Computed example of a mutant assay.
Amino acid sequence: MAGVDAANPVIKVVALSGSLRKGSYHKGLIRSAIELSKEAVSGIQIEYVDISLLPLTDTDLEVNGTYPPEVEAFRQKILEADSVLFASPEFNYSISAPLKNAIDWASRPPNFWAGKAAAVVSAGGGFGGGRAQYHLRQVGVFVDLHFINKPELFVNAFQPPAKFTSDGDLIDAEVKGKLKEVLLALKAHTLRIQGKH
């Protein structure tokens, strides 16, 4: 795990996007979070992990306690992380199939989500992906993730002024400020869970 220097712990965060689209706003939120971690939020290191290559969850793929190589690599990333940043789109009032698939794979015995701090951000129309966030929190209860309660970040991506470019890059200063607050809260929550705060 990260955070070996007790005086200046570095929180190792894995970031997952539930949207696979190239110009995804959710990937844009993660890119912005990574930039903020380098410029404005010290002591936090964020790594984006692509979940698009994971096969569909199928226990027939588990052989003698091992998993397919892509799954093993993904599970290892989760195991080594201190906490998780989810960027979760809302599909039909719920989380996306790719994100649920990733969660299911890493929850197979042994459950690598257990005991980790987590935060979730989203973008979309209307409620800005809020229903997906609340559904993800329900899933988190079962897999023993510990989500920050506040601040919450729901970005209404379609209400002027523009929040993202056509490539999905976040350009709204107010949203960036709120995203920074989420990262600071995730860092503090992680340190509390680890008994270092």
Rank of each mutant, 00 (worst) to 15 (best):
164 F>I: 00
98 P>A: 14
87 A>M: 05
134 Y>P: 00
77 K>R: 09
89 P>V: 02
159 Q>W: 05
125 G>A: 11
136 L>T: 00
157 A>R: 01
121 V>M: 12
135 H>F: 01
112 F>K: 10
143 V>L: 11
169 D>P: 06
124 G>W: 05
83 S>P: 10
133 Q>E: 07
100 K>W: 14
119 A>H: 10
142 F>L: 08
97 A>F: 05
167 D>T: 07
174 E>A: 15
100 K>A: 11
151 P>L: 00
130 G>C: 10
94 S>F: 15
111 N>H: 13
105 W>S: 09
159 Q>A: 08
137 R>K: 08
151 P>M: 05
158 F>A: 04
142 F>V: 01
148 I>V: 09
79 L>G: 05
171 I>V: 14
96 S>E: 15
106 A>Y: 14
129 G>R: 06
168 G>D: 10
101 N>Q: 08
140 G>Y: 01
126 G>M: 03
82 D>A: 01
162 A>T: 01
119 A>V: 02
139 V>Q: 15
156 N>C: 01
125 G>N: 08
168 G>F: 13
155 V>A: 00
135 H>V: 01
112 F>A: 04
127 F>Q: 06
84 V>N: 13
167 D>Y: 05
151 P>T: 15
123 A>C: 09
86 F>N: 03
94 S>N: 15
86 F>T: 03
119 A>S: 08
139 V>N: 09
121 V>S: 10
107 S>Y: 11
148 I>W: 14
114 A>E: 13
89 P>K: 14
167 D>L: 07
96 S>H: 10
155 V>D: 03
104 D>H: 13
165 T>M: 14
160 P>N: 09
133 Q>I: 00
81 A>M: 06
174 E>K: 00
120 V>P: 06
129 G>N: 09
110 P>A: 06
93 Y>T: 03
84 V>K: 03
91 F>S: 14
149 N>K: 02
170 L>S: 13
160 P>A: 07
102 A>T: 14
138 Q>F: 09
104 D>C: 07
131 R>L: 00
103 I>N: 11
147 F>E: 01
165 T>W: 00
82 D>E: 08
126 G>F: 07
140 G>M: 01
115 G>T: 06
173 A>P: 02
153 L>K: 07
141 V>P: 08
86 F>H: 09
97 A>V: 13
91 F>L: 05
109 P>Y: 12
107 S>F: 07
132 A>D: 06
110 P>M: 04
106 A>T: 12
107 S>R: 12
97 A>C: 08
133 Q>Y: 12
80 E>V: 05
75 R>W: 03
125 G>E: 12
132 A>W: 10
152 E>D: 00
128 G>Q: 07
84 V>M: 14
95 I>Q: 14
90 E>C: 10
103 I>Y: 15
79 L>Y: 11
131 R>K: 15
165 T>D: 04
124 G>A: 08
90 E>A: 08
145 L>D: 03
101 N>G: 11
92 N>L: 15
169 D>A: 04
161 P>C: 10
135 H>L: 01
98 P>F: 11
148 I>E: 05
150 K>G: 03
144 D>G: 08
85 L>W: 06
76 Q>W: 04
142 F>D: 13
